[in-house]
Structure formats: structure tokens, C-alpha cells
Design a protein around this nucleic acid. Structure first.
Length: 192
DNA sequence: CATGGGATTGACT
DNA sequence: GTCAATCCCATGC
């Protein structure tokens, strides 16, 4: 992935990340679901401005923004847009690729139930072993890395939907899913 | 320093 | 469908 990939409008990057591969150690998976967040809308942590918590979001693009949700789940984001703009793409679900045994053991589920491994933003970080320590790391070459589309994910069909689990700016269609994937955190909603 | 709110998940009715 | 676990951090006194 080139550095300029992330220095674009966050909604564009969110769509472009579907089909890319996230790797941490021996574990990896194909991104099948993302959401975009931007400091211009209140669902984004960066909406409140620059604070210690949001510093990573306003920093250079191509870094990992990892934060703790509900006191127990680490959520992985890719920081986007030029430095000074607070924007990131939340990685919401993966199709498991490598290290499935290890991911299953971290998740405490049967390895045969591969759809239970990474079908949610909290699940995938637990499966990959990503913690708050990854916050601020370089996604191009860091411990947590994202690489470009290959094979059958080279030219994915991506569906748009509204974002999940938020209470503000719920009308924005900033969720992106790999069409027909059985590894999503939730089905794409029917068109209104 | 005390308080309250989550970009979630899994267990349970 | 409902609900609690659990903790970082922003805010307010």
C-alpha cells in the first residue's frame, strides 16, 4: 500500500479498503466490512477536536488508531486524510486467511466456525491479538499492516449502507461491505 | 477528584 | 427482543 492511499477522502478509502488484507504476526484476514468517520460529523471521536485521545486521528495518515470500546474491546481504525484532519476508517469484519487456529484459540471458539472469528470490530482485534499498544503504529510496515487486494478480491463488488451501533449521524451511508460475504458483522440492510 | 457515556459482545427471556 | 460487563477519557465542580 502506498502512503498516498490514506491521504484521500475517508469515504473513498473506506470503500477502497474492502478486499485488502490485515496482518498481525502469523494471523491475517481480508477486509469485508468498513465504516468511515470524519471530524465534521458527531459520530467521529475527532468531532470534539484535538485531545490526548484523538491525537492519533489528527496525525499523519496511514497509522493505526486503536481505542477501547465499552471498557473491553479494542477497535482498529486506519487514519486517513492529510495530517490535521481527524478521520479514520473502522475495520469492522474480516474473512479469516492465515493463523486460523491461533485466532480461534484467542477467541475461545471452534476453528471450524470461521464466521465467528472476525465478524465484528471487537472480535477481529481479539482474534488478531491487536491491543491498545498498536495505537499510532504504521500500517504500511508496522506490527499491524494492511496490504493491497489480491486474487479473487482484486475487483470486489462493494455495497453501501448506514453505519452500525452509533447514536449520532446515523443517516450517513458510510458503511461498506463486500457483497454477499458471509463474514460480515451484520447483513446489509434492505434498501429504503 | 467524581461522574457519565460509549464506533461491542455474549448470555439470557 | 433485553441487558450487563468494564474502563478510558472528557467534562465539570
Amino acid at each position: 500500500m502506498r502512503p498516498a492511499f490514506y491521504a484521500r477522502p475517508v469515504v473513498e478509502v473506506a470503500q477502497a479498503l474492502v478486499g485488502c488484507v490485515v496482518t498481525h504476526g502469523e494471523c491475517s484476514g481480508v477486509i469485508v466490512e468498513t465504516e468511515a468517520y470524519h471530524d465534521s460529523e458527531p459520530a467521529c471521536h475527532a468531532f470534539i477536536g484535538l485531545t490526548p485521545r484523538t491525537a492519533t486521528l489528527f496525525g499523519p495518515p496511514g497509522r493505526a488508531y486503536v481505542y477501547l470500546s465499552y471498557g473491553m474491546h479494542s477497535l482498529l481504525n486506519a487514519v486517513c486524510e492529510p495530517e490535521g484532519v481527524g478521520a479514520a476508517v473502522l475495520i469492522r469484519a474480516l474473512e479469516p486467511l492465515d493463523g486460523i487456529e491461533l485466532m480461534a484459540s484467542r477467541r475461545g471458539v471452534d476453528p471450524d466456525r470461521s464466521r465467528a472469528l472476525c465478524s465484528g470490530p471487537g472480535k477481529l482485534t481479539q482474534a488478531l491479538g491487536v491491543t491498545l499498544a498498536a495505537n499510532g503504529g504504521d500500517l504500511l510496515g508496522g506490527p499491524v499492516a494492511i496490504s493491497r487486494r489480491t486474487g479473487r478480491f482484486s475487483d470486489p463488488v462493494v455495497q453501501r449502507d448506514r453505519r452500525i451501533g452509533i447514536t449520532k449521524a446515523t443517516e450517513l451511508p458510510w458503511r461498506f461491505c463486500l457483497s454477499g460475504s458471509p463474514y460480515l458483522s451484520a447483513p446489509v440492510r434492505a434498501r429504503p
